[in-house]
């Protein structure tokens, strides 16, 4: 229970970003143009975009986290291989169980020495630690990799009441919702409890906002860093995943 309290997150107020005046940026553009001119001259044909392969993931894991990292990734790949072809509900169950069993809940403070850090599945598996959004992201990515359409998956910010219906402790939390049908009651994949329950049986959670990777450039884009993607946590983590070899 003590851990749960640490999943709290501070909302970073994202103001409607007006486009910065192009005038102010003109100097920077000229500089960019000069750099581009120079680099295109220097590089000539340009570089071949790295083709992200799932195999690459193992190599990165070994390099970063050693044998435990390799084992974790191997286990994950085995899970994905075993679950392939099963029906969606079974896939959801296995993925949920895999991560809830394997990953130890720790706050970002402890794992990353940062206030709020969205880890990629590889980072989560490599360290075997993560907080609520790391669980949700890892599960989302796994299910998407198993072929479940994005329209059935939602990462959802929820207001979680900790310690039973009468408790006054409220916590910002993130879960993954699985919608068997678009209009159906979602199944909740949570890090707080290991069991998957339909939303109607989770009175402790109140949904605030949900999102998935639909409509985002980054998900399908080549792993060239898009400077604007860094500004959004969600796009940032998708981009880092792409660079690590997860598509």
């Amino acid at each position: 229970m003590r851990d749960v309290l640490l999943c709290g997150r501070k909302w970073r107020q994202g103001a409607l970003s007006a486009i910065p005046s192009w005038h102010r940026r003109r100097a920077a553009i000229f500089q960019l143009a000069a750099t581009l001119l120079l680099s295109s001259l220097l590089l000539g044909v340009g570089f071949v975009a790295a083709k992200p392969l799932f195999d690459q993931l193992t190599a990165v894991a070994v390099q970063r986290y050693g044998p435990p990292g390799r084992d974790a990734v191997t286990a994950w790949r085995r899970l994905l291989a075993d679950a392939a072809g099963l029906d969606e509900v079974e896939q959801v169950r296995r993925v949920n169980a895999f991560f809830n069993r394997r990953i130890q809940y720790e706050s970002d403070d402890v794992v990353w020495h940062q206030n709020d850090y969205w880890a990629t599945p590889l980072e989560t598996l490599g360290r075997a630690m993560g907080d609520c959004e790391d669980f949700a992201i890892a599960k989302y990515v796994s299910l998407e990799a198993l072929g479940i359409p994005r329209s059935k998956l939602r990462l959802t910010y929820v207001r979680a009441q900790i310690g039973g219906p009468t408790s006054g402790i409220v916590q910002a939390h993130m879960i993954l919702g699985y919608y068997p049908e678009p209009s159906a009651d979602p199944m909740i994949l949570d890090s707080l409890i290991s069991e998957i329950r339909p939303a109607s049986r989770r009175p402790d959670l109140a949904p605030i906002f949900s999102f998935n990777a639909e409509g985002l450039w980054v998900a399908g884009a080549p792993a060239v860093s898009d400077p604007t993607a860094r500004l959004s946590r969600w796009r940032d983590v998708l981009q880092r995943m792409a660079q690590e070899g997860i598509q």
Partner: peptide, 16 residues
């Protein structure tokens, strides 16, 4: 470069 910059900014605005 200017066109790409503008497109990028507009896209960020769309998403936000």
């Amino acid at each position: 470069a200017a066109r790409n910059y503008l497109a990028e900014q507009l896209y960020v605005k769309n998403v936000d």
